[in-house]
């Protein structure tokens, strides 16, 4: 036990110095320093985003410096708040952040802005009311999840006929992008006259979505389609459709266009998904930040493209 205590401190020291491990200060090189603060880098989606950003920086190494940080767990708000503080004290010119929570990060971002740091919001949009209360304006650079989900939903609607029963498998119910995708699915289904008989959360996870899909199929034998708020859940739903012996009778749509979905899109088990260009999402944010820093323009919201992907 005795030998474990120093070991523990050593590893804590190691962990705590990791986020500060960026290159020499911006003042020395004259290049702007941009901090990318992500959610969990263990998540495929955010990892792709971070890798896209690193590639972009490598191609534009003369233009700016990049520090990439992520938190361990998507719900670990305290860790992300700490990261923002550290980035500010490191003297970065801009922070591009995918907030782990759309309200809880506002206070620390206000601190960052007051310290003269440009803040750009990507991925998960900060809550408009909270921003207003804090007297803060932070530009959002990102895709319109609702429009994307609606577009995939419209592709699905063409395969169904009015009055058909459909079900939605939602993401984490507190996540704004999850709520937007659900709303987009509903827009498309209501417009086409479909009947939404169930809408439950699969918590963004394949296994949980599989259970939810199996339950929905058993409880609603006439369901013709499962609308999943991400691709991992679409994979879980596809397995549930197969297990229920309903292959080919139930259409599935997803969101994100992850690599693992390709074989299912190819053979039609999944009809369509939505690509919001994950590898470019952070890049869009960084480019917006660089432009504002260079031109001294006042920041504004910016929409990035979403595309429907079939087969």
């Amino acid at each position: 036990m005795k030998c474990l205590v120093p070991l523990l401190f050593a590893s804590l020291a190691l962990i705590s110095c990791k986020p500060a491990g960026g290159p020499a200060s911006a003042v020395a090189t004259g290049k702007p320093k941009v901090a990318l603060v992500m959610k969990s880098l263990a998540n495929e989606f955010f990892q792709t985003m971070a890798e896209g950003a690193k590639k972009h920086q490598a191609a534009h190494a003369g233009d700016y410096e990049l520090v990439v940080n992520g938190i361990k767990n998507e719900t670990d708000l305290a860790e992300q708040v700490g990261l923002v503080d550290q980035m500010v004290s490191q003297g970065v010119q801009a922070i591009v952040i995918a907030p782990a929570d759309s309200k809880a990060l506002v206070t620390v971002l206000k601190r960052a802005k007051e310290a003269g740091v440009l803040v750009i919001n990507i991925d998960n949009k900060l809550d408009a009311d909270t921003l207003k209360q804090a007297g803060l304006s932070i530009p959002f650079v990102g895709p319109d999840n609702r429009a994307g989900a609606k577009a995939v939903g419209e592709v699905l609607a063409k395969k169904l006929k009015a009055g058909d029963e459909v079900a939605i498998i939602e993401g984490v119910t507190t996540a704004f992008n999850g709520q937007q995708r659900k709303a987009g699915f509903e827009d498309a289904m209501n417009a086409a006259g479909m009947k939404i008989v169930a809408s439950q959360s699969g918590q963004w996870e394949m296994e949980k979505a599989n259970g939810v899909a199996a339950g929905i199929l058993a409880a609603n034998p006439n369901v013709k389609a499962l609308l999943c708020a991400n691709d991992n859940m679409a994979l879980g739903a596809a397995a549930a459709v197969q297990a229920a012996g309903k292959a080919g009778q139930v259409q599935i749509i997803g969101f994100d266009n992850i690599a693992a979905l390709k074989p299912l899109l190819a053979d039609g088990r999944v009809l369509a998904t939505c690509d919001q260009h994950g590898d470019q999402l952070a890049v869009f944010g960084i480019e917006a930040a660089l432009k504002i820093l260079k031109d001294k323009t006042s920041p504004a919201d910016q929409q990035t493209p979403v595309d429907v992907v079939v087969k």
Binding site: A42, N43, E205, M206, E207, N210, N232, L235, G236, A238, A239, Q242, A243, A260
Partner: peptide, 15 residues
């Protein structure tokens, strides 16, 4: 067995 049910392996499985 978990992978066989889903046809895929998810590194987040089992949380």
């Amino acid at each position: 067995f978990n992978c066989s049910r889903l046809g895929s392996a998810d590194p987040n499985a089992g949380t």
